[in-house]
Nucleic acid binder design. Sequence first.
DNA 1: GGACCATGTCTAC
DNA 2: TAGACCTGGTCCC
Length: 271
Amino acid sequence: MPEGHTIHRLAGDLGIRFGGRALRAASPQGRFAEGAALVDGKRLTGTDAHGKHLFLGFAGAGWVHVHLGLYGKVAFGDGPAPEPVGAVRLRLHTGAGYADLRGPSTCELLTDADKDALHARLGDDPLRGDDGEAAWARISRSRTPLATLLMDQATLAGVGNVYRAEVLFRHGIDPRLPGNRLTHGQWTAIWADLAALMREGVRNNRIDTVRPEHLPEAMGRPPRVDDHGGEVYVYRRAGLPCHVCGTEVRTERLAARNLFWCPGCQPPAPA
DNA sequence: GGACCATGTCTAC
DNA sequence: TAGACCTGGTCCC
């Protein structure tokens, strides 16, 4: 599901599957009918991802910009495309395979200039090889809680609710710590960790954040299955014991999103 | 079949 | 900060 790793993975998969080829495009659901008609029959020249934004370049037609939002999905299939099931906003296909896009919050056609403007309002992306210093410049002068800053796409692009909860846990940082109380050393460690975790997320197409020494087998506990499909420390584990210290994982609404942390492993910094 | 929930973001008050 | 919105999965009746 859609944090930055999903989008980068999609950009890669779409490039491998369809790159360089002329594609048929349609909008069975109808809400992208005009855009689909404009790229129909055009060659896919390249794909790009920045944070949670996906871009598909079509020769002579510009860029299809997709944001999956909370519910969006892309489903791939081999062979000729069957009758569309459900609300398919955009279907791309060749005779040999197809991709169906459902439920995106955005699916629109952009010019190069539109795309540039979008990049300009997005922050550093751990999956684009950025060094994180522009993000640090904003974080280090903000009194906003770090948990909120990590999800501000203008500061940092691609991190969502799972990665923010998990990376703060891995670094033992209280999510409510104001940005300007973080040290540069802590930030470079967080940035490097995010880049590594998210690269692994792209590879595996799921979010795993638990260190090998904390996996249940290594802790002498029975294996577990997290219902969102990856191994995590605190995300959506409210009320359950922390895998590391046993303290009950807490949850709270912060800036209209659910936040999860372990008060034992992520104690408040001294004032 | 309906209620509810979700890894996101924008807009209006 | 509340509500809206895009959709599908899960749970309950």
